[in-house]
Design a protein around this nucleic acid. Structure first.
Length: 435
DNA sequence: TCTGGGGTCCTAGGACCC
DNA sequence: TCTGGGGTCCTAGGACCC
């Protein structure tokens, strides 16, 4: 019995590592890892690095010896580069279908309804070759009747050398075999907690899960769990999301380059995050109804008392003006700050987002609102043209995150010891390739 | 010394109203 | 003095994703 192949999942292999390799081809076949912000932990690994036993999320400081011994190449994360490469991959994929969902920076769901089942493998190979040729990024393709099964097929396409990076689940027998080979914790939608619970009940594979009673799953894993269950059985519960829905919250937060004790340093960091966050808010044409600020000390500390606090206020009316948001964020921070602690992270969340057009009337009844709105437009235009640092508030300080030299950087700024060039988005980066 | 950042959805429980 | 029940809204917390 054959099933209709409705979805393909195209996933970039070790995406961040692959981005770095595009511009450093000599790193092919060499173990490579990419670190999270602040060079904290491993967030991408090449196959060679995986073979050395380096796991996702491992702290870098615990791996230093291994990295040195095995000559692992290390990169700080370079989101400017990865974002740009991601756009190139998406634009290549959109040549293959107009109906495509950007699921994450390195994954897209593609609609297959225009293909006959027997054409899917050939189509998948063509996708792989074209993306590789046009962007330099290797991808894998999984195809099936539901999104959950397409994810599962994609995982196996990566694992099975003989699949050549493309796997389609055509028949019930093929699907059953794939389900039997997938550990339950590797199913999309089954996280650590559910996996643990299921394993205790001797449900160890995706196949076992697909045989569970609906009632038990609904009761213990909510309706999202039930959707996963039905999709494993081939019954589609999720469609492509062709338009990205507006975000309901927007957050900007960073760990500090080193622990901070002074309020003024944290104010510089938080004001910079607030400006970033407000910029994201305006890009979505939204206004925020509330502001939350959070502040924390090191949660792993054993000798110090862990302090983790947050404060929220509702705004008199929704706004996206930095002039409204900044003083409120600063006030919340001062309210939480306790001297004598070593803080490691601060962040802001803008919540209760509403379309800016819906508060427009209020905005015009308030003269300040109209002025602010024009000012913010101007700021956005100038910053887009000349960069984030072109126009800043005094409270943000005068240091520039792009500066590499230690003494030119503020203490709150991220560590990025192993940063590659912004090869694709700046002239300097471009010159670095030629050299 | 050194452990990321940014989201979503669901549910339970409390507050409040009629 | 007795003291219901149903509905809605909000929030906190937990689970998940990449």
């Amino acid at each position: 019995m054959t099933t209709t192949l409705r979805f393909a999942l195209v996933d970039c292999n070790s995406f961040y590592v692959s981005c770095e390799r595009v511009f450093r081809p000599e790193l092919e076949d060499v173990p490579v890892v990419v670190l999270s912000n602040n060079d904290g932990c491993v967030i991408a690994r090449s196959d060679e690095a995986k073979a050395l036993g380096i796991k996702m999320g491992m702290p870098y400081f615990q791996l230093k010896d291994l990295i040195k011994r095995e000559r692992v190449e290390v990169f700080s994360s370079n989101y400017e580069l990865y974002g740009d490469m991601s756009r190139r991959v998406v634009s290549t994929l959109s040549q293959f279908t107009p109906n495509l969902e950007i699921y994450s920076i390195d994954e897209c769901f593609l609609d297959l309804s225009h293909l006959k089942p027997e054409e899917v493998e050939e189509w998948g190979r063509s996708v792989r070759e074209t993306v590789k040729k046009w962007t330099g990024i290797p991808v894998s393709v999984g195809a099936a009747g539901t999104k959950t099964l397409a994810k599962l097929a994609n995982r196996l396409a990566k694992k099975r050398a003989e699949a050549g990076g493309v796997l389609a689940l055509h028949t019930a027998a093929e699907t059953e075999e794939a389900l039997r080979k997938t550990p339950v914790g590797d199913v999309w939608g089954i996280g650590r907690q559910h996996a643990k619970r299921l394993q205790q009940l001797n449900v160890t594979t995706a196949w076992d899960l697909s045989r569970m009673p609906d009632g038990w799953v609904k009761k213990n894993m909510a309706v999202t769990g039930l959707r996963t269950l039905l999709e494993l059985r081939g019954q589609p519960c999720q469609d492509l999301e062709l338009e990205t829905p507006d975000k309901k919250n927007i957050c900007t937060s960073r760990s500090f380059g080193r622990p901070l004790t002074e309020l003024c340093d944290i104010e510089e960091a938080l004001s910079t995050h607030t400006v970033r966050c407000a910029t994201k808010l305006r890009r979505q044409n939204s206004c925020a109804s509330g502001v939350t600020v959070f502040l924390m000390t090191n949660r792993f500390a054993v000798t110090e008392h862990v302090y983790c606090n947050s404060r929220t206020i509702q705004l008199p009316q929704p706004t996206n003006s930095e002039l409204e948001l900044l003083p409120r964020a600063m006030h919340l921070l001062k309210d939480m700050f306790r001297p004598g602690k070593r803080y490691v992270k601060v962040g802001i969340i803008l919540n209760g987002l509403v379309p800016a057009s819906e508060v427009q009337l209020d905005l015009f009844s308030n003269q300040n609102g109209e002025k602010h709105s024009k000012l913010m437009d101007t700021l956005d235009t100038l910053r887009q043209r000349f960069g984030h640092h072109a126009l800043k508030y005094a409270v943000q300080g005068n240091k520039n995150e792009k500066d590499v030299e230690e003494e030119k950087r503020a203490p709150w700024m991220l560590q990025k010891k192993f940063l590659s060039s912004p090869y694709t988005t700046s002239l300097k980066g471009l010159l670095r390739i030629k050299a």
